Amino acid sequence: MTTTTTPAIDAPRSPKEPHKLRSRRTSRTGRTNFELYSWLFMRFSGLLLTVLVLGHLFIMLVLDGGVEKINFAFVAGRWASPFWQIWDLLTLWLATLHGTNGLRTVINDYAERDGTRFVLKSLLYFAAIVMIFLGSLVIFTFDPSIKA
Results as ranks from 00 to 15, higher is better:
residue 65 G to F: 00
residue 12 P to T: 13
residue 77 G to N: 14
residue 53 V to P: 03
residue 65 G to T: 00
residue 127 A to F: 14
residue 42 M to C: 07
residue 66 G to E: 00
residue 51 V to H: 03
residue 74 F to H: 10
residue 61 L to G: 00
residue 20 K to P: 03
residue 56 H to Q: 12
residue 78 R to T: 11
residue 104 R to P: 04
residue 63 L to Q: 01
residue 118 F to D: 02
residue 9 I to L: 12
residue 49 L to S: 04
residue 116 T to S: 06
residue 52 L to H: 06
residue 28 R to H: 10
residue 35 E to G: 05
residue 10 D to Q: 12
residue 60 M to C: 08
residue 8 A to D: 06
residue 76 A to T: 14
residue 116 T to P: 01
residue 126 F to D: 07
residue 77 G to F: 11
residue 38 S to I: 04
residue 71 N to I: 13
residue 37 Y to K: 08
residue 23 S to V: 11
residue 104 R to L: 15
residue 11 A to M: 02
residue 82 P to T: 15
residue 63 L to A: 00
residue 122 S to Q: 08
residue 53 V to M: 11
residue 89 L to V: 12
residue 119 V to Q: 08
residue 81 S to R: 12
residue 122 S to T: 09
residue 119 V to W: 13
residue 52 L to N: 06
residue 40 L to C: 09
residue 20 K to H: 12
residue 9 I to V: 15
residue 113 R to P: 02
residue 54 L to A: 14
residue 37 Y to Q: 05
residue 34 F to G: 08
residue 108 N to G: 05
residue 117 R to A: 03
residue 120 L to M: 11
residue 88 D to C: 11
residue 57 L to H: 02
residue 36 L to H: 04
residue 54 L to E: 06
residue 62 V to P: 00
residue 54 L to T: 14
residue 110 Y to D: 02
residue 7 P to C: 00
residue 85 Q to I: 14
residue 21 L to Q: 14
residue 72 F to H: 14
residue 64 D to N: 08
residue 21 L to N: 13
residue 42 M to F: 07
residue 102 G to A: 08
residue 113 R to L: 06
residue 80 A to Q: 15
residue 126 F to M: 15
residue 13 R to T: 05
residue 115 G to D: 10
residue 52 L to F: 10
residue 88 D to V: 01
residue 49 L to C: 05
residue 80 A to P: 11
residue 103 L to G: 04
residue 65 G to L: 00
residue 77 G to S: 12
residue 105 T to Q: 09
residue 93 W to I: 15
residue 118 F to N: 10
residue 44 F to W: 13
residue 109 D to V: 04
residue 33 N to H: 11
residue 67 V to E: 01
residue 117 R to N: 05
residue 27 S to R: 11
residue 12 P to G: 09
residue 117 R to W: 10
residue 83 F to W: 12
residue 85 Q to G: 03
residue 14 S to V: 15
residue 109 D to I: 04
residue 95 A to P: 01
residue 103 L to M: 12
residue 32 T to V: 08
residue 126 F to A: 15
residue 102 G to T: 02
residue 108 N to H: 12
residue 125 Y to V: 14
residue 44 F to L: 14
